[in-house]
């Protein structure tokens, strides 16, 4: 298989399979999670200021007091790479073109030089949080294979995308094919790993906040 055949495969059958598995897994897990249900809480609700689902969403999106100083890399690095990913994924012209083709939605793109910069910053932040995870004994102890695996499948699409655009190491066609392939791997594993937080993050924060608010505890 030469690079053009690989590119044709990842743009055609490969993408079809990856999006199929992604949809299947995502819808399966959302149905399953929503249908779990909880027993009705029969106690009388207590009211405390700042205790609600929405409050928790806001509160947990910020570092708790003192934590920013104790773990700056986790918070700053984490924020930077998530925002960077959003910019790279949603504001790069060829990506918007794909979204428009799939869902009919489109919006203006950022100049590619800006996206380039965001990519470099994202890659650097991701490397930093990984190094931090390995260096800090507690974080290392808490880390499982899945943590490293999900880091890698998130990192690779960004890296290969950057290398393709910048013509690094391999010819553009090969790199583009590898880039699309790495995104397909990400799509396939996303519903079945902790990467599913893309969908569950805010709803689980809201749920925890709401359940605790009933007991009068702002979490």
């Amino acid at each position: 298989m030469n690079e053009v055949e690989l590119l044709n495969w990842v743009r055609g059958p490969g993408l079809n399979i990856a999006i199929g598995i992604f949809l299947l897994g995502t819808i399966w897990r959302l149905f399953e999670i929503y249908s779990l249900g909880r027993k009705k809480d029969l106690s009388a609700p207590r009211h405390t200021a700042g205790a609600s689902g929405w409050n928790t969403i806001a509160r947990r999106s910020l570092a708790p007091p003192g934590m920013l100083k104790r773990s700056p890399i986790s918070y700053i690095g984490g924020y930077v790479f998530h925002v960077g990913l959003a910019i790279v994924v949603f504001l790069f012209a060829p990506h918007i073109e794909l979204i428009e083709n799939l869902f009919g939605l489109s919006w203006p793109a950022l100049p590619s030089q800006v996206v380039d910069l965001a990519t470099v910053v994202t890659l650097a932040a991701m490397v930093l949080v990984l190094v931090d995870r390995i260096n800090k004994p507690v974080k290392r102890y808490l880390s499982t294979v899945e943590d490293y695996f999900t880091w890698a499948v998130t990192f690779l699409p960004v890296l290969t995308g950057y290398m393709a655009v910048k013509h690094l190491l391999l010819p553009y066609t090969t790199m583009l094919a590898l880039h699309i392939l790495s995104v397909e791997i990400l799509l396939v594993v996303l519903p079945f790993t902790k990467l599913f937080h893309v969908f569950t993050l805010f709803m689980s924060r809201w749920y925890n906040g709401q359940a605790n608010a009933h007991k009068g505890v702002p979490v």
Binding site: N8, R11, G12, P13, L15, N16, I17, I19, G20, I21, L23, L24, G25, T26, I27, W28, R29, L30, F31, E32, S35, L36, P94, H95, E97, L98, N101, L102, L176
Partner: peptide
């Protein structure tokens, strides 16, 4: 466009239906 799928995504609908079916099935099991 080069970044758009080369072929139509034929599996999408059946994958969605299958995902929903497995999800509902799992909810009954649970």
């Amino acid at each position: 466009a080069l970044s758009a799928p080369a072929d139509p995504l034929t599996l999408a609908t059946s994958a969605t239906v299958a995902g929903a079916a497995i999800g509902v099935g799992m909810s009954f099991v649970n």
